[in-house]
Simulated scan of single mutants.
Amino acid sequence: MRAVQITEYGPPGVVHVAEVAEPHAGPGEIRISVRASGLSPGEVAIRSGALRDVVPTTFPYRTGFDAAGVVDEVGDGVTGVGIGDEVFGMTTMAARGANADFAVLAAWAPKPEVWSWEEAGGAAGSVETATRVLDRLEVGPGHTVLVQGAAGGVGAVAVQMAVARGATVIGTASAHNHDFLRSLGAEPTTYGPGLVERVRALAPGGVDAVFDCAGGAVADLVAIAGDPARVVTIAPDFTAAAHGVHMSHGAPADETGAAVGAHADPLAFHSLEIAVRLAGEGRLRVPVAAAFPLAEAAAAHELSQTRHARGKIVLVG
């Protein structure tokens, strides 16, 4: 089968599609024939070499954590799903390999009918990350939440899931994405110098929690929250620990260890069923910035590294 691999550190040209052996579902797992899969910004950073000192990488490195497709193998002990079912879900963080013709999923849920394959293929990682962080921040009704980097793949989903919890959401993005953020239910503002003052003007009663999807502004985010314990980042911002800010990730210890400043958080697999419910209620969509054929994975990496994609980048076919 075809699978996307990174062969060495470098520019997008080191991303290749190779022929590899098919994986098979083990106990508690299913295998899908992949219709679409998500591109991971974290793996784009790994490929560039930006994380070489903190994320040990062995090449060739198989990519992809989330995917959607049709079940074609069911492992021992699995119930409630059968051959031919349409699902979306995640691999284990250690196994990866979802950017391929076939992928083994460790967590899954039925594909919502209202989502396209592209939306479903890029959903699981963003939904899990958003839920994991919102749970840690204990976001609930009546809270005010700032999402830094709200127009990206995780940020756009986090906005909607926070709104669904009854929170008021302020989102940062470039000015041309402000109408997009309003459509998701957030009050938009720009990032950069003056952020603290702009957010205080929008939330004179204060901000209860900050979800940082972008990095690079930890000190300002702590000032906005008033307490580093109310800020969680998912960006590879290694100044976070110095400010007392938790960096949430789900990577196994043998990949990141203590170098990222925190042990892995438990993955929020319950998020997938929440997403199915919200999608059915018309309260959760998965904005897709672009869909590239699997063979053009290098071009997808090139777009991702611009950091200007609105929503999730996915690979199809």
Rank of each mutant, 00 (worst) to 15 (best):
M90C: 12
W117Y: 10
P188R: 00
G80D: 07
A3S: 07
G215N: 07
G153E: 01
T58E: 14
G49D: 03
G80W: 15
A290Q: 07
A45I: 05
A156C: 12
A242K: 15
A106C: 05
A130V: 09
P204N: 01
E296L: 07
G155C: 07
H24Q: 04
S116I: 05
L134M: 09
A25N: 01
P204I: 07
G171Q: 10
R35W: 03
Q148F: 15
G317H: 13
A289G: 02
H24V: 08
A98D: 01
A50I: 07
L184D: 03
A291Q: 08
G257E: 04
W108S: 14
I224M: 06
G206Q: 03
A298M: 03
E296K: 08
T189I: 03
G261R: 05
A289T: 00
H24T: 13
H308L: 15
S271G: 14
V154N: 02
D85T: 05
A3F: 07
A223M: 01
V133D: 11
V276I: 08
L51N: 00
L184S: 06
V15I: 05
R200V: 11
A251F: 15
A229K: 06
G171E: 00
R96D: 04
V44C: 13
D220S: 13
L137Y: 02
A98I: 01
T168Y: 03
V34E: 02
A156F: 00
V286P: 00
T57A: 13
T190E: 15
A225D: 08
M247P: 08
Q305W: 02
T129C: 12
S304L: 04
V55S: 02
V71D: 00
E296C: 02
T7C: 06
V78D: 05
E128C: 08
A25G: 04
A201K: 02
A295I: 09
A258R: 05
